[in-house]
Nucleic acid binder design. Structure first.
Lengths: 130, 130
DNA sequence: CTTGACCCTGACACTGGTGTCAGGGTTTAT
DNA sequence: ATAAACCCTGACACCAGTGTCAGGGTCAAG
């Protein structure tokens, strides 16, 4: 199948398919005219790539084990578990940071609301004096 | 004070101070030789910029209200509250997405552990409370 | 007067996946 | 034969802030 067909089937843009190739994730054959020729198995490969990208892995990370997981079950690919672990740790760090940010924001918003409440009634035109 | 001195005092790199200037956040005077001349108040300005950057605002967003908050209390600056609100909503969305990612990852890790347990026969639940 | 520390501007790199355009070849149907 | 729809490569843009280098000016102390 051509790149356009694969794109249509998988919902991944032609642009992205070429990018995946450059990242070593998928290596189609070439026709005599230079067109990429994808095997039907490429559909499964692209679906896997989508899945791992959605898990927050980068194409570079995926390249490290995609070859293996396409042939075996994930559990047989030793590269996967440590990657998942570090990714999970990273995500948990991000969540923690975001929660802190959220708390900061909320406190500041609360403070503003308090101050606005204090001047309510005497100062109506507070949106004019800037 | 010179840009190097301001950098030393605030802990912000010279490079970043020039960037803030280009973004319209701080406008030092110039000496006859072209050197930037910062007023002592610039220290406070830079500290405010740091604070808002840490809240997850962009320099462009900060530029929209910094002028006001340096002169008044935050509550007096109408631009701040909607910005905080949308930023908070954005953060909450991010947290939700990360939590979903985390759950996916955990499930996949659990599945791998199960399969590995089947093969190795002995593996006990060594990770309590996860 | 020279050296070293400091300042100036402009520009490229990086992150990571995707959009998009330019400029050109191929195929298919009319 | 021509147009439409595809394909090819290469390159710039985006986000946002920072590092870093090049190439050059300024200043103060020895």
């Amino acid at each position: 199948m051509t790149i356009g067909e694969l794109a249509a089937v998988t919902g991944v843009s032609v642009r992205s398919l070429r990018y995946y190739e450059r990242q070593g994730l998928i290596m189609p054959l070439r026709r005599a005219n230079g067109y990429r020729e994808y095997s039907p198995l490429a559909v499964e490969t692209v679906e896997s790539i989508k899945l791992y990208l959605n898990l927050g892995l980068t194409t570079e990370e995926i390249a490290g084990f995609l070859h293996c997981v396409l042939k075996n079950k994930e559990a047989f690919c030793a590269e996967v578990m440590p990657l998942y672990e570090s990714k999970l740790a990273h995500i948990e760090r991000q969540i923690q940071e975001l929660n802190q940010l959220k708390e900061n924001l909320r406190q500041r918003m609360e403070a503003i609301r308090q101050e606005q409440g204090q001047v309510e009634g005497q100062e109506q035109g507070m949106f004019q004096g800037q």
